[in-house]
Amino acid sequence: MTMGFEAGQDAFARAVTDPEAALPPGVTSRRGEADAMRFAVYRNNVTVGLIRALEMRFPVARRLVGEAFFRTLARDYMRHELPASPLLFEYGDSLPAFIEGHEVSESLPYLADVTRVEAAWTRAYHARDAHPLTIAELAAIRPEDLGATRLVAHPSAALVRSAHPAGSIWAAHQSETVTPPRAWQPETVLVARPDMEVTVRILPERDAPFAQALLAGEALDAAAAKALAADATFDFGSALVGLVSLGAFSARTDDEDLPK
């Protein structure tokens, strides 16, 4: 049978992502008949390729749930959402939200946040390069201007605030042998790539509201007020120097060379 080019590709695309679907019309072989094993090569290529992209992006999640279950999870996700573009390093941006709604989160409630750290790692790796704000540049701000100063988040910087020790779990799975986190407590993780190395750091929990407010573009004094309200032991100086030395910011908003 003959069908139009568009209709033919519609049918092919549907069949290639749905293992239950019949073979698309018009597909044949030299023997003169359609062959499911031949069409299965395309189905397999699509599925295996997308699962591999997720395996490469989420190696810690894969270790946490095991290779076989990760493949199942990845296949479920693939049926839920195909890549929106050919930039496969972006595929899986919505995997954390998908995992949150998946039954696996009943037994592994921290899994979604660990994938948030892994997703942030890849985004930081491919982020726009930018000079990180240095301690010297910070020190050049006049004391009377400091409170009203807003810092610009480095293009690679991201914060993951978790009710679980997501950063410790991620860190423990960077080596062959895994030592479980000593304390099971909420963690806030800063992912950044000030130069060529992506860093993943667990922030002191009392600094978390401050970091979150600054990365959202709030002024230093407003951010400090939020942190103090949450924890009276918050220390402005050490928190700010800590974040700047991790490469969390690229500039101050009053810098003349800033993109407006």
């Binding site: 992502t17 395309y42 699509v46 997308l50 890549p83």
Partner: peptide, 21 residues
């Protein structure tokens, strides 16, 4: 081809060879 309106299919898929294609 590899892109369809359902998303990116991540494989090099075949097409018929006709005057239209």
């Amino acid at each position: 081809w590899s892109t369809h309106d359902t998303g990116f299919l991540n494989d090099l898929l075949p097409l018929p060879y006709t005057d239209e294609t």
